[in-house]
Structures are given as structure tokens and as C-alpha cells.
Computed example of a mutant assay.
Amino acid sequence: MSTLIKSAKSIAPLLDRVLVQRVKAEAKTASGLYLPEKNVQKLNQATVLAVGPGFTDANGVKVVPQVAVGDSVLIPQFGGSSIKLKDDEEVVLFRDSEILAKLNE
């Protein structure tokens, strides 16, 4: 079951889900050499594209996500739900609690 989504803007995360796109690793070295695609590693840094509204816990307390659209975050190397977009891009859906850190730039 592989569904291609038109764009990341058509995805609205629910509850405490956060939609991110990994930052692309450089395919060229500082000296100008191009690296083969299989040697370019996935980075753990991502940009937040969309954030769910949060949820209400068992005690009735509203829990809102700790990140906002546009934030740079660190994500786990594995996990999340990958979503393929039509233009061969890939975005990943994580729970807010799975995000490791927010980067202050």
C-alpha cells in the first residue's frame, strides 16, 4: 500500500504528531568533489513542516507540542512514519515526544 501524496502541505498531523523533512546532506565535499549517492548519509537534523494541535491527557490537562513550524530539530536516526511525496521527496511523521532536541540557531 504505497500512496503518493501531492505535497507536504496536504498533510495535517493529528494529536501530538509533528511532520518534518530531513535536511539534505551535502553531496559535494569542501574541495569540490562530488560524493556518490550511496555514500551520502542521512542527517539527524530536520525542519518542522507541520504540527498537530496536541491532546488532552488522562487528567484533563491539554498537552501541546514543544515545537513550531519552521523550527530546526534533531530526530532519531530510525523511527517515525516515512511518507513519499510525488516529487520524490520524503517527509517523516514523529510524535512530539520522539523529537530529541530543538536547535537554537
Rank of each mutant, 00 (worst) to 15 (best):
N59E: 14
E37F: 06
L4Q: 08
T29D: 09
P76A: 00
Q66L: 04
V91Q: 11
L93M: 13
V40F: 01
Y34R: 10
L14K: 09
V73N: 03
L100N: 12
S82G: 11
Q45E: 13
L4C: 05
G32A: 08
K24A: 12
V91D: 05
G32E: 09
N104R: 10
D16N: 15
N44T: 07
I11T: 04
L74F: 08
E89R: 15
D71A: 07
L33G: 02
D57N: 15
I5L: 11
K62L: 15
A68Y: 02
L93H: 06
V73W: 07
S10A: 01
P53E: 10
D88Y: 13
G70L: 02
P13R: 06
V20W: 06
V67K: 00
V92F: 07
T47Y: 15
L35P: 08
G70I: 01
D71L: 03
S72E: 15
V91Y: 08
K86P: 00
V69F: 01
F78V: 09
L35I: 13
R95H: 13
T3W: 05
I11G: 02
V63H: 02
S72G: 04
M1R: 10
N39L: 14
K102I: 12
F94P: 08
G80Y: 08
K28M: 13
K62C: 06
S81Q: 13
L4E: 10
V51L: 02
I75F: 05
K42L: 03
R22K: 12
G54P: 07
A25G: 13
T3G: 00
N44K: 08
D96R: 05
A25W: 05
I75A: 04
V40C: 04
L103M: 13
L33F: 14
E89V: 01
